[in-house]
Design a protein around this nucleic acid. Structure first.
Lengths: 359, 359
DNA sequence: GGAAACTGGTCAAGTATTTTGACCGGCATG
DNA sequence: CATGCCGGTCAAAATACTTGACCAGTTTCC
């Protein structure tokens, strides 16, 4: 196989300590029991939490048996663990092809990072979403069929998240976790974006604002709605009308939802749209209907994609750097690979506001 | 001699980076000069202060000579080490972020294949295009700075292609090769697409057809124009007017080109547009001008991207499966890696016609 | 000759990791 | 049953690293 490219080793002290422990056990440096934690800490000049984290790792490998009050027992002679090729599995409800470019971009970035550190990213697509079958069965088939060291869950349903939490398989959720689920996750801060969007629009004189998003909402969408409402509430004394409209996610559905909105007596003057693809449909349909942007209707997109700079007028939106986003995911994944767990339970990335002509 | 006591390695990142630098220098990874600090940082995922501290160490060892404004010189003579990991370098004039999603998709797919077979794909971006500097110098800097086993050239200019051909470095061209260049290449069959487009439009009764593309044309664009003309010529007895219009590639430029086209006496009834992003601008500008699609103007796109299904009416276009496309590239690359050369000099993939409502 | 685009040089603010030092309760032995 | 050692837990402080910005010198090309 290929040698590792020249590259500074970037392991944590915890991992280094675990290595040293394994080596010490394998070389028979200690017999029966480990020295006390404080002794080892002093000897190796590492702090106790660090050592304990390392011991925790070996405990999971069943090399050590620890118990309060008693000395830590060495269970077996550690063999040099052959470095097996680690794979990271990405679980997505749709093929990458049909996902927004930004998603593909962070996936690519993630793949690049993983490849550079010797890991492999395997993408598993649950066709037609995992909703159809009972997720439990589908997940068991998938995870047993293609074993991965760590799973990355994109657009995971509540059932999926709960299944992973219970099964204890290491995974990182991309997107929001559902209430009560405590898996490590990386997400955009939708709430902040939507709150900010309302604030910006109000500041520019808009009084009737609508938020358009699809019916099948994921965690992020609930957060978005909350943020939207917060924004409206924050400006309540100016009598802001904030309406949330759901569509069915299809092009036709979006158009009819828009038509209803336009036909209403209190036609909004500003529109916040979730998802870049939907925003494109909204934009083109409005233009087709003769609605001028932004004179008759301001349009904002909650999400980002490069193609939104190719429409005229260019779309105002919120963007997260896919590079930064991928890096966060990578860090969590690496932590899971090396340490078996990640304590961070919810990393939120705040999107940047990209002001364009559509507002 | 006594064995070193077992002990966790407690080196700082700076020391690790210095080690990596020394190793890289000793193995002859770079010749003459180090790559720029920012490049290395990005490659190794290390911050600049950290890298600079490491460089400072080597400077003291008289291994490096650094000076503001000039590139860091390597003072030591290095033995070339044979066993280097295989890397594939992708040369692109723009960052992946700004490229159309389909491009990113085949890049990702290619990365995935390479990673699975132990190769690494490194993306090198020639900022602002390679046009500024003389390509020879730029390419020498790039290829010596980050040596790759095989290079993949995306949107390579004629000078670049000729340089690679003469230098003998193994490479695969994605896109057309220029006349006289005999490098292995994978390309979409633009000529066939454009010819087909004209034929289809004529068949539907269009008599005045325009082809809109940018001024700075690559090989594929020349092929496209040839195909367009062939299509027009093939239907000559029906008096087809086929006009080729060039724009400057910016959103405003496209709009003004369109305005001129619309203001002309012989306003076309059908428009073939190169590149998905440009097609989006065309589509939205037409709608904004009150031009109905497809009643007043049929719009076709030579290239594909998923977002074109989110505009209304959905865009008719030509698509190549990025998965298949990447596979072709991968095969050529692997052949070059294993055999040192590939005899296939021009693989052409014929795009599929995706009929939608915009025609 | 001058603008643009490189190069390294510097710094402050933000984030992540690790250490410190403290306290708790279980377990073994005199 | 008391003492002392053991692991278990935590929050605050210190440190290491990253980020993003700006500056100045050098090269390149118009």
């Amino acid at each position: 196989m290929s040698a590792t490219p020249v590259r500074p080793a970037k392991t944590s002290l915890i991992v280094e300590t675990a290595k040293a422990l394994r080596l010490g056990i394998a070389s028979g440096q200690w017999k029966g029991h480990l020295p006390g934690e404080r002794v080892l800490c002093n000897q190796w000049q590492v702090s106790r939490p660090t050592l304990r984290a390392a011991v925790e790792l070996l405990k999971r490998e069943l090399l050590l048996e620890v118990g309060q009050g008693r000395r830590t027992r060495i269970l077996m002679q550690a063999e040099a663990v052959a470095a097996r090729p680690l794979t990271v599995g990405l679980l997505s409800p749709e093929s990458l092809e049909s996902l927004p470019p930004t998603v593909m971009h962070w996936v690519d970035e993630l793949r690049s990072h993983l490849a550079a550190s010797g890991q492999l990213l395997k993408v598993t697509v649950g066709k037609g979403g995992f909703g159809k079958k009972s997720p439990v069965q589908a997940l068991e088939v998938i995870t047993s069929g293609s074993p991965a060291t760590v799973w990355v869950l994109y657009q995971a349903t509540e059932a999926m998240q709960r299944w992973f939490e219970e099964s204890g398989l290491p995974c990182v959720v991309v997107g929001s976790t559902f209430p009560g689920v405590t898996l490590p996750s990386v997400d955009r801060d939708y709430r902040a974006s939507c709150r900010h969007a309302v604030g910006t629009l109000v500041q520019r004189g808009h009084r009737r604002i609508a938020f358009l998003l699809q019916e099948n909402r994921f965690g992020g969408d609930l957060e978005s709605e909350a943020g939207f409402r917060e924004g409206v509430a924050a400006a309540v004394r100016r009598e802001i009308a904030g309406e949330i409209v759901h569509h069915n996610g299809a092009v036709d559905g979006i158009c009819t939802s828009l038509d209803i909105l336009l036909a209403g007596r209190a036609r909004p003057t500003a529109l916040l749209v979730a998802r870049s693809g939907y925003a494109l449909t909204v934009h083109t349909h409005l233009l087709r209907r003769g609605v001028r942007i932004p004179q008759d209707m301001a349009v904002l997109c909650r999400d980002d994609d490069a193609f939104l700079d190719w429409v005229v007028p260019r779309m105002t939106r919120y963007a997260v750097s896919p590079v930064a986003f991928a890096k966060r995911i990578y860090h969590l994944v690496i932590k899971l690979v090396e340490e078996g767990r990640a304590k961070e339970t919810g990393v939120k990335v705040v999107p940047a506001f990209l002001g364009r002509e559509s507002v």
